[in-house]
Amino acid sequence: MKRMLFIYNPMAGKEQIKNKLSDIVQIFCKSGFEITIFATQGPEDATNIVQERGEEYDYIVCSGGDGTMNEVATGYMNITKKPICGYIPAGTVNDFASSLKIPKIMKKAAQLITQGSVFRCDLGQFNDRYFTYVCGFGAFTEVSYQTPQEWKNALGKAAYFIEALKHIAEIKAHHMKIIYDGNEIEDNFILGLVSNSVSVAGYKAYSKMNIMMDDGKFEALFIKEIHNPLELQAALNGLMSKKFDSDRMLQFSSSEIKIICDDEVQWTLDGEDGGLCKEVTMKNHQYALPILCDKSVSAQVSHRAAKKAEEVEEK
């Protein structure tokens, strides 16, 4: 039998897994899995169990929000033999699952794990930590982990916007030097997002055709300090149209990015607290996470699949 470690966060989202756990386990058992179930009780529990016992299993499946998935991915980066990963989203936004077209309905996500294909997704490193889809600073990036869990459970995505409005007057610009691919940009920035995802905080920042989640590169988007309403409008127009041609915006792709700040900056990793840092280095680990998802994902977010399609077309 195929051995599976099933990790779930009982508090994620609206605690919906409590009513779905039996159905999920039954789906796995019918597909020939021998299952060990582990419920997280606090921060880093998922990382620790993957590091301690992950190599004993053929599959590691987690259910929770993007923060739980982040912990599992961090554990993966600290073991040699990497089992196939599965994800059953149970959080409020679930950007990582959305980018990989993993169903929001938990039973369907479980069925996908028994039928899907393995996609080798890139993972990001942030100094000595890791992220699955985004790290960021400034503007509203702190909102996701400052928002009370009870609000998330009761209000869903609206809870984030309510919390954001409370902090709109607190946006602070940070003087930074951004270094990538031989380029060096120095300016004051109010927002930075370094991602490997179609969706960030529920917002689809890029055209899907521009995002390749296994190409070994991050998509980086920075917004410079806003001085007047016209600059603010230009930046908002760029975000809405997905055309980042305003002189207040900096957008590029790179496999490694270094940022040096004058002061300590609060970062988030996959929507969770990333700590205060004056200097950060982000590296893309290509093909690091073997995760089960819909076969159609390869056609949309896979660099390898796109290259194969081009080769076939040329022939």
Rank of each mutant, 00 (worst) to 15 (best):
M4G: 02
F6C: 02
Y8Q: 01
K14R: 12
V25Q: 07
Q26P: 01
F28M: 11
F28D: 02
K30G: 10
E34Q: 14
T36N: 12
E44A: 14
N48H: 13
N48Y: 12
E55P: 13
E56F: 15
I60T: 04
D66G: 05
G67K: 00
E71P: 02
V72E: 00
A73K: 01
T74L: 03
G86L: 06
Y87P: 00
F96C: 04
L100G: 02
K101S: 09
P103W: 06
K107S: 14
A110C: 11
T114I: 03
V118C: 13
F119C: 03
F126Y: 10
N127P: 08
Y130F: 14
Y145H: 13
T147K: 00
P148I: 07
K152G: 05
E170N: 14
I178G: 03
D181R: 12
D181T: 04
I185C: 05
F189T: 08
G192N: 05
S195H: 09
S199R: 01
A205F: 15
Y206F: 15
N210R: 11
I211A: 05
M212E: 04
G216S: 09
L221T: 02
F222H: 08
I223H: 03
E225P: 09
I226G: 01
L236D: 11
K243C: 12
F244T: 00
S246M: 11
S246T: 10
M249Q: 14
Q251I: 09
S253V: 13
S253H: 11
K258N: 07
D262P: 09
Q266R: 06
G274K: 07
K278F: 11
T281D: 07
H285I: 11
I291Q: 00
A299P: 01
S302Q: 08
R304S: 06
E311V: 09
